[in-house]
C-alpha cells in the first residue's frame, strides 16, 4: 500500500473508532453527570432555603453576564425565598457561596460554602457549620458585618474566625456584593417575570444546561 495512504487510513480508522466509542459512552454517561450536578445544586438550595421542596430558575441578562436566581417553593408551590450564588476572591482562590434570602428581602435564611481553597485548618473553617450557621436569620440591612473575638451585638453581625480574618472577610464581602446585585436586578414584585420555566417535578435534567454558571462548573 502507498505509505501515505496507509498513514491516512490509520488515522482515519483510529479517529473514527474513537469518536464512535466516545459518542456511545457520552450518551450513557451524560444524563447521569447532569443529574449529579442537578442534585448537588438542589441540595445546596435546600440547605439555604430549608423550607423549600422545589425550585424555579430565574434568569436575567445584565450586560454581558446572565444573573441566575433560584426561587424556592414549598410543596404547595408557594415561594419561600430566593437563592443565588456569590463568588469572589478569598485568601488563596475563589470562594463560592450559595446564599438563601427570605422573601421579605431582609434576613438571610442560610448560606452554604460551595467551593473554597482556603488554608486547611485555618481559612477553610469557613466551611464548618459553626461559621455557616451564624448567617441564619442575619439582617442584610444596611449590610452584613463581621466583628472579631466578641459575640455579635447587632442583628446584622457575625463573628469572624480567629486567625482567619481574611477568609471570613471574603465570605461576608461576597455575600454583600451578591445581595446588592440581586436586589437591584430582581425586585420583589417582579420575581415572576423572570421564571425560565416551571421546575420539572422529577428530573430537572435540562435546567442545568441553561445556566451558564453551571456549565462552567461542569468543566471542572
Amino acid at each position: 500500500m502507498n505509505p501515505v495512504a496507509k498513514m491516512f487510513l490509520n488515522l482515519v480508522v483510529v479517529g473514527a473508532l474513537s469518536g464512535g466509542i466516545l459518542a456511545a459512552v457520552f450518551h450513557k454517561a451524560d444524563p447521569m453527570i447532569q443529574a449529579n450536578k442537578e442534585k448537588e445544586l438542589k441540595e445546596a438550595i435546600f440547605v439555604v432555603l430549608p423550607e423549600a421542596k422545589d425550585y424555579k430558575t430565574l434568569e436575567k441578562k445584565v450586560g454581558q453576564e446572565t444573573l441566575v436566581v433560584y426561587e424556592g417553593v414549598d410543596a404547595a408551590g408557594a415561594p419561600v425565598g430566593i437563592a443565588f450564588k456569590a463568588d469572589g476572591g478569598g485568601f488563596q482562590g475563589n470562594i463560592g457561596v450559595m446564599v438563601g434570602l427570605g422573601l421579605d428581602y431582609l434576613k438571610l435564611n442560610g448560606i452554604k460554602i460551595l467551593d473554597q481553597v482556603e488554608t486547611p485548618g485555618l481559612g477553610n473553617r469557613i466551611a464548618n457549620p459553626e461559621f455557616q450557621d451564624q448567617f441564619k436569620g442575619i439582617e442584610i440591612k444596611p449590610k452584613v458585618e463581621y466583628i472579631k473575638n466578641r459575640k455579635p451585638e447587632k442583628p446584622n453581625q457575625i463573628q469572624s474566625i480567629t486567625g482567619a480574618t481574611i477568609s471570613s472577610d471574603a465570605v461576608v464581602k461576597n455575600i454583600n456584593n451578591a445581595i446588592t446585585k440581586v436586589l437591584g436586578e430582581f425586585p420583589k414584585e417582579d420575581l415572576g417575570k423572570y421564571v425560565k420555566k416551571a421546575a420539572a417535578p422529577a428530573h430537572a435534567g435540562k435546567d442545568g444546561k441553561e445556566s451558564p454558571k453551571e456549565s462552567n462548573d461542569g468543566g471542572k
Binding site: V25, K28, A29
Partner: peptide
Amino acid sequence: ALLVTVADMFLAA
C-alpha cells in the same frame, strides 16, 4: 485521550 475521557466520564457519573 479516548480512554482518559471515558474514565473521566465514568468517575463523574
